[in-house]
């Protein structure tokens, strides 16, 4: 085999592996549709999405996932309220204020990012929930509020590091120009750097949200598990991810319940896909705006 043919052969081999990622993503999509299909032959999509009752084991069963979507939304909104200010604020701190201590703080934030979600879940269940129940005098500690708190903390390092990347992409010259005009560092940060990094920061926030929506173990352990539309943030909820994780073990293979769980998986997947694509789109425009290409 001559040299040229050998080179071509290597190139093809690498191309095939690269295509495998495409195949895996396609595989996930096909699996979800295939798994959910039998359900949608019996249950109308609208009834599935907007139905207010999720009673998979009753006779007759009810397949409305609105309470589960509401659970996901409640927990996600709460988590965002915690993680966005803390994550963006921490990133701004690292960008503008931190001196030498940065070499110490950044690894710590990375450690926070590396803690497995089951450990967060365990911490929430064993430490945070009892504490919150006593402190706020609630009937149960395992509720949307506790889940939001823990999920929020989990997402901080993720949002923080993406935000910091976005800030670092802003050309230094903007900062110099602003300071040379007599702006304070804070004014420079708020009026020039953050707006310039704005779409990069929104990408970070959207991806953080997608993460929170898809997070499973933490909500499975802490959110309380009640499949009803929550009345307050102190109600127990059952988000979509934890429904799949909790019920898959009990659902008989091939039963409608089993297919309904795939249906939830499909909805979940489409939600995160939409967020990820939006983030991708915004981040491309961000690079263009700053005159960066990649």
């Amino acid at each position: 085999m001559n040299l040229h043919a050998k080179e071509t052969w290597y190139r093809r081999l690498f191309a095939v592996t690269a295509f495998s990622t495409l195949i895996f993503l396609a595989g996930i999509i096909v699996t979800l549709f295939h798994g959910a299909w039998p359900l949608f032959r019996e249950v109308n999509v609208i009834d599935f999405l907007a139905g207010r009752a999720w009673y998979p084991t009753h006779t007759p069963p009810e397949w409305g996932i609105l309470p589960l979507i509401a659970g996901t939304m409640t927990v996600t909104a709460g988590a965002m309220l915690i993680s966005v200010p803390l994550g963006v604020g921490s990133a701004l701190y690292l960008y503008e204020i931190a001196g030498k201590e940065k070499h110490f703080i950044k690894p710590l934030i990375e450690i926070l990012a590396g803690i497995p979600s089951v450990v967060y879940g365990f911490f929430g269940m064993a430490v945070a929930a009892p504490f919150i129940r006593n402190f706020l005098d609630l009937p149960v500690g395992l509720c949307a509020f506790t889940a939001s708190l823990i999920l929020g903390i989990m997402a901080v390092p993720f949002i923080c590091s993406l935000t910091e990347d976005a800030l670092r992409m802003v050309p230094k010259s903007f900062r110099e120009a602003s300071l040379a005009l007599g702006a304070s560092r804070w004014q420079t940060l708020v009026k020039v750097i953050v707006p310039a990094a704005g779409s990069g920061i929104s990408t970070a926030v959207i991806l953080g949200m997608s993460r929170i929506i898809g997070e499973t173990m933490t909500v499975l352990m802490i959110s309380g598990g009640a499949a009803v539309i929550p009345k307050s943030i102190f109600s127990p909820v059952r988000p979509m991810t934890s429904t799949i994780a909790a019920e898959m073990g009990e659902a008989a293979m091939g039963s409608l319940h089993y297919h309904a769980l795939f249906g939830i998986g499909l909805v979940l997947f489409l939600m995160t896909l939409l967020l990820n694509i939006t983030a991708e789109f915004i981040s491309r425009r961000f690079r263009l705006k700053l005159g960066l290409t990649q």
């Binding site: 009026k191 020039v192 707006p195």
Partner: peptide
């Protein structure tokens, strides 16, 4: 000091804002 001593840099470095906002910026921050 920086208000009193202005500076123009080697590479033009306008902010990614409108022409008007660029010129008005220094006044606003002051």
């Amino acid at each position: 000091i920086r208000k009193l001593v202005g500076m123009v840099f080697q590479k033009p470095n306008p902010f990614p804002k409108s022409i008007y906002e660029n010129v008005a910026y220094g006044l606003e921050v002051n």
